[in-house]
């Protein structure tokens, strides 16, 4: 009888876990697509994320943020699988990477707020996908998924200050990419012609 009772309890717990986990499928898939930029790889990544989540479900604390927990698994798998190691090994946090953009920063590189609404959705997605992965993932977590800095820091395993600096750089870069696109496609005209 004890064994049966334990089995039932296990089944109940598993069912609850699976029910909750599957609710995050679309969100995880969209995140995987943005990370891998490839539908087949995104599917593999999501499937492997769920397999790993199932295996380690006992480490998930019921009542905490399951979406964040699943994202953390997926993002670690992504770096291990597709990038050859966790990103701390290939940090982009040095200032060198964006020194160039800092020197390019000028008022004319700032699109009007309403210009953004005239840019097609796929161009915005393309711009996000052009960001370096370390910056792309923080944009996904904070801007797309609405995680707090603390939650994003927990998912990424970095201090909050690192989330803030990556986010700041990512947004500036995104601004520039979208502005460049808006100029190339004639949505805005360059103000730097001296005319």
């Amino acid at each position: 009888m004890v064994l049966v009772a334990e089995h039932v309890a296990d089944t109940d717990r598993n069912d609850g876990f699976a029910d909750e986990a599957i609710q995050h499928l679309d969100t995880l898939y969209r995140g995987a697509l943005r990370l891998t930029r490839d539908p087949a790889r995104a599917e593999d990544l999501v499937q492997d994320t769920y397999v790993r989540a199932l295996r380690y479900q006992n480490s998930y604390q019921v009542g905490t943020n399951m979406k964040a927990w699943l994202f953390a698994i997926m993002r670690n798998l992504f770096w291990d699988r597709f990038k050859g190691g966790r990103p701390e090994d290939v940090s982009l946090d040095g200032d060198g990477q964006f020194a160039l953009y800092d020197t390019l920063r000028d008022p004319s590189a700032m699109p009007e707020a309403d210009v953004l609404d005239r840019i097609a959705a796929e161009e915005v997605v393309k711009a996000v996908e052009q960001l370096p992965e370390l910056h792309r993932e923080v944009v996904l977590l904070v801007d797309v998924e609405g995680f707090s800095y603390k939650e994003a820091a927990d998912v990424l395993g970095v201090p909050i200050g690192t989330v803030m600096s990556r986010l700041h750089r990512a947004r500036r870069q995104l601004q520039k990419l979208l502005y460049d696109y808006a100029q190339e496609s004639g949505i805005v005209h360059s103000t730097g012609d001296g005319e």
Partner: peptide
């Protein structure tokens, strides 16, 4: 805009 544009689509 980033949220709206990146938050589209469902899993196959």
């Amino acid at each position: 805009v980033v949220k709206v544009c990146c938050d589209q689509g469902v899993a196959p």
